[in-house]
Design a protein around this nucleic acid. Structure first.
Lengths: 179, 179
DNA sequence: CAAAATAAATGATCACTGCTCAAATAATGC
DNA sequence: GCATTATTTGAGCAGTGATCATTTATTTTG
């Protein structure tokens, strides 16, 4: 997936590279969708690990570190990252609970950091606000990687996203970062 | 595209439905990518028209109308809307200038409305800020349509996006809407 | 009007895809 | 050693994007 991207990904090629036949691959995963779900869950895990490591060596502005890690992983792993959002499940296919839990770990990291920055009386808003801020950063990241921002001469999209994020946090009562 | 969605879209099926052979379709468009580009440009035009009509009957908060129109079109045309972002061009294929101009019309509508809401001294920031706000709404819209918000029990994602948008506008000096 | 020149449309063919499942192969238990 | 269970296989099916020699239709010309 990392090498060829979602559009050129195929079960046959996977089988060839791992030294098995297509049949075995289908015996294990049942369907291509379930193979893709598994691959994308793994990408989420790598992403969460990437974010955790960045936080370990973060400066004072840990929110900035989060935004930079979101963009950083996407930019360093365009194909794998894009595959997460290119894969649309048919209505009858569902992601196993176990995998949804694993995928949620990344979100939890962000919820915790948002909570840490909010004042006590705004703590209850952290989960909802954090998810909204993820959407904010995600939107900027999508437009960065698909060339929309470049086409419209918008430079430094990551900084743009961070501006939006801190505006929202400060509005919610967070203390402004020392910048 | 509207009926079957990006993943099940095929040139052969198009040819069958319009009463021509695949060959003719390829004589006209040259490649599937160029057919997809054409379809998606048309979706942008329909989208812009949709937004214009909503603005005509808008209440006092025209920014809210924009956000509702962004979400509204996406929700009413999930397959066509999603196809815009699912179609990734190979590095050697480019969108013709003419089509990029047409696609830019939607952005221009939003830039104009953002400018109208900003004070005089902030006018020059309108193009950059407007594109950032589009990214904000886009991110919320993606997570709404792909089920991410539902999975995390986040209700009213459109209202959430509008909150972020107005926070940013007020931070930039816009007068708060009467809500 | 007919013949020549141009334009438009065709669809068999190629290499690929997801997926199936009877058959072959391998591993295990007794 | 033999029978039972567990794995693995890959040809085959219906579909895909793309090609291009051939056919069909239209227009121009003498």
């Amino acid at each position: 997936m990392a090498e060829v991207g979602f559009a050129r990904f195929s079960a046959r090629e996977v089988a060839k590279r791992i030294g098995y036949s297509v049949g075995t691959l289908y015996n294990v995963f049942g369907t291509l969708d379930r193979l893709l779900i598994t691959i994308n869950t793994r990408t989420f895990q790598l992403w969460a690990e990437y974010v955790r490591q960045r936080l370990e060596t973060s400066g004072a502005d840990r929110i900035q570190t989060l935004v930079e890690a979101y963009f950083g992983f996407a930019r360093d792993n365009v194909n794998s990252w894009t595959a997460i959002y290119d894969h649309h499940l048919p209505p009858d296919v569902v992601i196993p609970d176990e995998q949804n839990l694993q995928r949620g770990a990344l979100t939890q990291i962000i919820v915790d950091e948002v909570a840490a920055v909010l004042p006590t009386q705004a703590q209850s808003e952290a989960p909802r606000l954090a998810r909204s801020l993820i959407a904010v950063v995600h939107g900027h990241c999508v437009f960065d990687l698909n060339g929309s921002f470049a086409l419209m001469n918008i430079s430094q999209p990551m900084e743009l996203a961070l501006d939006r994020v801190w505006e929202a946090l400060i509005h919610a009562g967070a203390a402004a970062p020392s910048r």
